[in-house]
Each structure stands twice: as C-alpha cells, then as structure tokens.
C-alpha cells in the first residue's frame, strides 16, 4: 500500500537527519566553545566566584572559619603595654633552671610586673636565640 501524504511528509522530515557537520567542524566548535566559556567566567569576575563559593558545598566550612575569626578577634586579650620595654639589655634576674632533656630551654624568670604579667625570656642553648613570653597570673 502506497504511503499517504502524512507518511511521506514524515519520511522527508526524517531525511533531514542526514544533515550533519563533519569532524573539522567539531574541532573548531570545541575550540570556540572553550574560549567562550573562559570569557564568560572572566566576565563573572571575583564577585561571581565569591558568590559561587558562598553557594557551594564549602559554605559551612567558610561560615565556620568566619565565625572563628570573629570570636578570636573579639576575645583576644589586650596586648600588655610596655612588653617591648620589658627586655632591657642588661638586667639582674633570678635564674631558675630545671633539670630536663639535653637541649631543653632554660627557663629564666625575667620580671614580675605590677600589671600581673610574668615576662619570661627563654634562651635556647647553642643558638643564641631567645623567646620572650608574657604570662598572666
């Protein structure tokens, strides 16, 4: 039985499936696509990147880090004044040493101030270096 007009129309439209680009077209297509994608991302700029980060899976970690920074800044004790001046070049001090493993830091109580801070200078043997720490009672 001969196909009717509807069937023939369907056959002609399906024949359009043979309209296909060649391999060279796809090479150019891929190269252009990558360039366009890069340009699109560059246009987004840092604001877009930040927005993606805030919307992304790292959002809880980012929020936690932000909270930690805020808490640290708010609860950090004020730096005691005069700590730089608490390291005179020549001072008499009471030397306290502790028995310990070879190479251990010799602890020296440097100064007990009225401000409630104990300034300790720790000389590291054989290095000529020293670490100054301030401890609050």
């Amino acid at each position: 039985m001969e196909p009717d007009a509807d069937e023939r129309l369907g056959q002609l439209l399906r024949w359009k499936r043979w309209e296909q680009p060649d391999a060279a077209f796809w090479e150019r297509f891929d190269a252009t696509f990558q360039e366009k994608r890069l340009r699109s991302l560059a246009r987004e700029g840092w604001g877009g990147w930040l927005l993606r980060l805030l919307r992304g899976p790292g959002r809880p970690a980012l929020a936690a880090a932000g909270l930690l920074c805020a808490v640290t800044l708010l609860t950090l004790p004020p730096r005691p004044e005069g700590i730089a001046a608490a390291v005179p070049r020549e001072t008499e001090f009471l030397l306290l040493t502790q028995e310990g493993p070879a190479g251990a830091v010799e602890e020296e109580i440097f100064d007990e101030g009225d401000d409630g801070f104990c300034y300790v200078s720790q000389a590291v043997p054989w290095t000529g270096a020293a670490v100054l720490s301030a401890y609050h009672f």
Partner: peptide, 9 residues
Amino acid sequence: SLERLAAAA
C-alpha cells in the same frame, strides 16, 4: 545556510 549532507542521504 545549509548543512552538509552525509553520503548515506
């Protein structure tokens, strides 16, 4: 702007 036709067409 017509597309290329595959040989099988």
